[in-house]
Design a protein around this nucleic acid. Structure first.
Lengths: 107, 107
DNA sequence: CGATAGTGTAAGCGAATGCTTACGTAAGAA
DNA sequence: TTCTTACGTAAGCATTCGCTTACACTATCG
């Protein structure tokens, strides 16, 4: 999970993910979308995303087609949601504990 | 925004954020929560979070009290939400564009 | 077969990261 | 004032990162 979080912390990798979010794309198409960096750099970014299980690879003849792994993306989003709401839960339980303490003091 | 994303990509910084999510804590209390790392390391993590505007610092006598910056946290969460749903938006606009193209071809 | 796309990978490099130790500094306590 | 507590910060170091160039490999075309 931490691997995925670090993977999407990079803007280029987030852009790559958006490219393959809806449509499956060959590595060359993905690479040609970035004009400030080499094809090799993009290939390595794809490797990072692959290792984080955020993209799936399918070989078709000469090409390798990539698409976002919606399942893992969803898991990551859930993790982040739980992290956020987890804070609220802590607030809630803290408030409840304070209330109990207050009640005990009054009882 | 990218700074914030990279800040929360680190597990120790996420834990720090949770510690100061609800209650304001002095740096020493935060540091003493981590037994595998020096107080200095935590201080530097606090610096990263501070630079990402994810925590607020308040001085009280000798101490420095930290708390999570709920506003910035919310902004970050919104950014991530838009990133996720942005993929769906792209799918929608792509479908609309395809439809328009189709209409033109038929016109 | 050889030539040519499409692609991953190894090597190397400069910059950033996360950590430690040592030091600096500001606010009370004696 | 001197000592102590609470903290940031500089320096140094090993590791990781993102990038480039060069090369290796596989599939297709001739």
């Amino acid at each position: 999970m931490d691997t995925a979080l670090k993977a999407i912390a990079d803007p280029k990798r987030r852009e790559i993910l958006r490219l393959v979010w809806t449509s499956e794309l060959p590595a060359s198409d993905i690479a040609s979308h970035f004009h400030d960096v080499t094809r090799s750099a993009i290939s390595q970014h794809l490797g990072v995303l692959r290792q984080a299980n955020l993209i799936c690879e399918r070989r078709s003849g000469n090409r390798r087609l990539y698409r976002a792994n919606a399942e893992e993306m969803a898991r990551l989003r859930t993790f982040l949601d739980q992290y956020w709401t987890g804070g609220l839960d802590r607030l809630k339980t803290a408030a409840e504990a304070a209330q109990r303490k207050k009640d005990n003091e009054h009882g």
